[in-house]
Design a protein around this nucleic acid. Structure first.
Lengths: 116, 116
DNA sequence: CATGAATGATACGGAACCGAAACGAATGGC
DNA sequence: GCCATTCGTTTCGGTTCCGTATCATTCATG
């Protein structure tokens, strides 16, 4: 059975998630960065700059810059595609997997605590 | 009964929400702005700069700047407290209520479509 | 090879944000 | 009335992000 939520629950959940992200001094990613990161960790490789840009409906520099930031945070890695050196493949990292796992747990916890 | 989610569902939900926010050309708020906005619309007034800063664990200028941005977007309004003119009270707006309603519906829709 | 297409990175001007500190207006205690 | 305190804003220097346009590298086609 699908997950059913009421409006108050939905807004409360989102508020609790946002609030936790703000209060933790975890690296605060933008929605764009977050959608890139979670896409990389949810969908099967390979992930390229161009592919992610199309997936998100944004321009390539947006992806490049987001990867700069998240690369500095060690959340993802960039590697040249050896079979086509024009491509850059985005790889997962241990730190990135931990971050994704942590934020997933956060959502689960906050969902569990929602008012009826 | 509480809302129970699995890790994959939690991450997918968050990804779908982030992705929708990126793809829509809705005003893309930061986590800080979002948590302020939703707090104002979820909790009973009065809301002050100082109170919100304490609630979020950030400094007052952060709140002031977020209100500048969201005020320009007509998502919230500022009014001086007539009984203590040092205070600024944050009020809801029609546009803000619509935004909150829309993002709540988004969460509900994405939660409903989650894989089992 | 030579040329055009494709890919990702970079340059640029502008905007928003950050933390820390200083500031003016308003209040309340004495 | 005076003065310390409170409140929100502004300033400062610095960082990050934006969209557009351009760049260098690599590949595919002939």
């Amino acid at each position: 059975m699908p997950i059913e939520m009421k409006p108050l629950q939905a807004i409360t959940l989102l508020r609790d998630i946002a609030l936790s992200e703000v209060r933790d001094d975890a690296p605060d990613l933008t929605f764009r960065q977050l959608s890139i990161l979670l896409t990389v960790y949810l969908e099967a490789p390979p992930h390229t700059i161009r592919g992610l840009a199309a997936r998100l409906g944004v321009t390539k520099p947006v992806i490049t810059r987001a990867l700069d930031t998240m690369g500095a945070l060690k959340l993802v890695e960039r590697h040249r595609d050896p079979t086509d050196k024009r491509n850059v493949l985005i790889k997962r990292t241990v730190a990135g997997a931990l971050y994704v796992e942590r934020i997933g747990d956060l959502v689960i916890d906050k969902a569990k605590e929602l008012p009826r």
